[in-house]
Amino acid sequence: MIRDPDTNARLKALRRDIAPELASLERRLVLRGGLSLGALTLLSGCDLSTGSNGTLADRVLWAMSRANDRVQQWLFDPATLAPTYPASMIDTPFRFNAYYPPDNIPEIDEATWKLEVTGLVADKAPWTLEKLRALPQESQITRHICIEGWSQIGQWGGVPLRTFLERTGADLTAKYVGFKCADRYYGSLDMPSALHPQTILALDFAGQPLAPEYGYPLRVRVPTKLGFKSPKHIAAIFVTNDYPGGYWEDQGYNWFSGI
């Protein structure tokens, strides 16, 4: 797909906006590398990096994170709705977030894009955007809370994930719904959160089809979880009983991350 000049100009401005942040990120990484030779040597292996079979400290931290998953699953009430806000409170511009700079936002061609559905579902036929648009749509203005601490209010619209799972004949008693993305990001939700009335497969952001930086053509939006639990550029959805993990979760972010 060749991007239109408007999109190119916007992405260029975005690159300019986050250039200082990227520079500071690079500085941070260099600093971290340098410091690990110094003071933090004492604490290496206390940062999840050695995994759930690593140092004693890492084993305890990973085990506590799994225990916190269970506590949060128990605290999660499927009937509690995330607060919604008036349109006047929407934050603009909305931050771009990814584990890569805007240059690497995947270019996706609507004509050839298809959503794969696999795993414990009856109907594994792929979906087009047109087919998704034909399903009942839902729109909400909710608060996106990032694991870094900041938050912004935005408007997302699309198909309730519950409706989609019902239409594909998914096993709603299965444990997980997983997502694979065009940008090699991946993630997963517990089934109760996937079936929450506000969890949607978003096609729109701010009343417009998703822009590339916000996850074109399809992302999930889960207002009952931290932002990283809502993958963008979704290419495949699968239903499974085997823990699928996630891009950040496998490095140590808490998997449930409910709010």
Partner: peptide
């Protein structure tokens, strides 16, 4: 430090967990 509320950050030698994920794991344990 991952998203400072005020125009300063804490020195790197005074923080625990190495990176945001590690720090959160310590905090939530």
């Amino acid at each position: 430090n991952a998203s400072p509320l005020f125009p300063f950050a804490f020195p790197k030698w005074a923080v625990l967990g190495g990176w945001l994920g590690g720090a959160l794991a310590w905090h939530f344990a």
